Simulated scan of single mutants.
Amino acid sequence: MAAMKILKAKMSSIFWSSCATHTINLMLEGIGKLLKFKNILEEAKSFTIFIYSHNTTLALMRAFIRKRDIVRSGVTRFASAFLTSASLLEKKKIS
């Protein structure tokens, strides 16, 4: 950020953008907080936790969706919420 301020002082026409991944994560975090999406994302998270916490249920799920797993939360936690929801929809179409 300090380098950006120095460059902006010397070249006022320069365009500055922070890390694209971080920016997208912040955007998805904001979208995930909207009431329209918040409940869906919470349900997907709860469902995924339930499935992976019960071995019998997990084995049954894998049998019906051809041994594919649900995308689970990872390093990019806000993007993961949307990826998990998309993965659940994909699995629903398969079964």
Rank of each mutant, 00 (worst) to 15 (best):
T23G: 05
S18C: 08
K91R: 15
K91P: 06
R68Q: 15
T21P: 02
I31G: 01
A44E: 01
L83Q: 07
D69R: 12
F37V: 03
N39G: 10
A3L: 12
R62M: 07
A9H: 12
K45C: 05
F15E: 02
I49A: 13
F47L: 13
N25T: 00
K45M: 00
I6E: 08
N25V: 00
T48L: 04
K10P: 04
K92P: 01
T48F: 06
T57A: 09
R66K: 15
F15C: 02
K92R: 11
L7A: 03
L89M: 11
S87F: 01
R62L: 07
L41E: 09
N25E: 05
A63L: 13
K92Y: 15
K91T: 06
L88I: 12
S17M: 07
W16I: 09
F64C: 07
I65G: 11
L60F: 12
S87K: 05
F15K: 03
F15W: 00
K8L: 01
M1L: 02
F64D: 06
S53H: 12
T21L: 09
M61D: 02
I31P: 02
S95V: 10
M4R: 10
H22W: 00
L28C: 09
S85Q: 04
A63D: 15
L58N: 01
A63N: 14
I65D: 12
N25I: 00
L83W: 09
T23K: 09
W16L: 03
T21A: 13
S17W: 01
L89V: 09
L58M: 08
A86W: 03
I24E: 08
I94F: 08
A63F: 11
K93W: 13
S80A: 07
A86M: 04
K33Y: 11
I49Q: 15
L83E: 10
S95T: 10
K38Y: 06
A81I: 00
I14K: 11
K10A: 09
K36T: 07
R72Y: 01
H54K: 14
L26R: 15
S13K: 11
T56K: 15
R66W: 06
F82E: 10
I51V: 15
S53T: 12
S95P: 12
L7F: 05
L7K: 03
L26F: 11
F15M: 01
A81L: 05
L26E: 15
L34I: 06
K91L: 13
N25A: 02
T48G: 09
N55A: 09
T21M: 09
A3Y: 15
L35A: 14
L89N: 13
V71C: 10
K45L: 04
T23P: 00
A44P: 08
K67E: 13
N39Y: 09
Y52R: 03
A2Y: 10
I40S: 08
N55S: 13
K33S: 10
V71P: 05
A63I: 05
G74T: 02
S12T: 08
I24Q: 06
N55C: 04
M11E: 09
R62V: 00
A86K: 05
K36F: 04
L60A: 10
M11V: 09
A86S: 07
I24L: 13
F64M: 05
